Simulated assay, not measured.
Amino acid sequence: MINRQMTPMTPLSDMRRDHSPAVRLGHDAVSAVKLSQQLTADIDAWAETHQITRSDAISRLLAIGLHASRPPAMTQPKLRDPVAIEQNAIQLIDQMLDPSLPADERERRIRRLVEGPAEFAGERIDLPRHSG
């Protein structure tokens, strides 16, 4: 069947329960989302910075967020060796730090996060206990 604009009509089999057309092959879905005023303002600012529309900004930000939260393709085996655990932690922290930091500052921050605050050293189970 053809409608008045001479475009193919959506067959009934492609209709969802809410009577909106399902996404057809080759067409992007249009989704309505409820956003707070602050979130909308933040998205608009991001869109303006990147010189794109709000719709494109939402799509890109969702893609960035989904990509960032994807689990690793291959799960790493559980580490039981304390040295291996520490090395893994150092590696992960190093990846998160700003690459423009000087090497000594990066090392200081990594050590601070791996070793933790001095006031908690007595609570750590991975450190030897000093009998007093």
Rank of each mutant, 00 (worst) to 15 (best):
L92C: 04
L62G: 02
I58E: 06
L12E: 00
I52F: 01
P82E: 05
L62K: 00
L35G: 04
P71K: 15
A121H: 06
H27Q: 06
H67M: 08
L25C: 05
D42C: 10
D14F: 02
D28G: 06
E115F: 05
S131H: 11
D104C: 07
N3I: 01
W46Q: 13
L66G: 13
M9D: 03
A41H: 04
Q87P: 00
L113M: 13
L101A: 04
D81V: 04
A68V: 03
I125M: 10
G116S: 06
R106W: 08
A29W: 00
L97I: 06
I125D: 10
S36V: 03
A103S: 07
D126Y: 02
L79K: 09
A73M: 15
S55P: 02
N3E: 12
D104K: 05
E105K: 15
G116C: 02
A29F: 01
D56L: 08
P99I: 01
S100C: 08
G132Y: 09
D56I: 09
K78V: 12
S131W: 11
S20E: 02
P82S: 05
A68E: 12
P117F: 01
P128D: 06
A22E: 00
Q91A: 08
A29R: 07
R112V: 09
I125Q: 15
P117Q: 10
L61A: 15
D56S: 14
Q51M: 03
H27G: 01
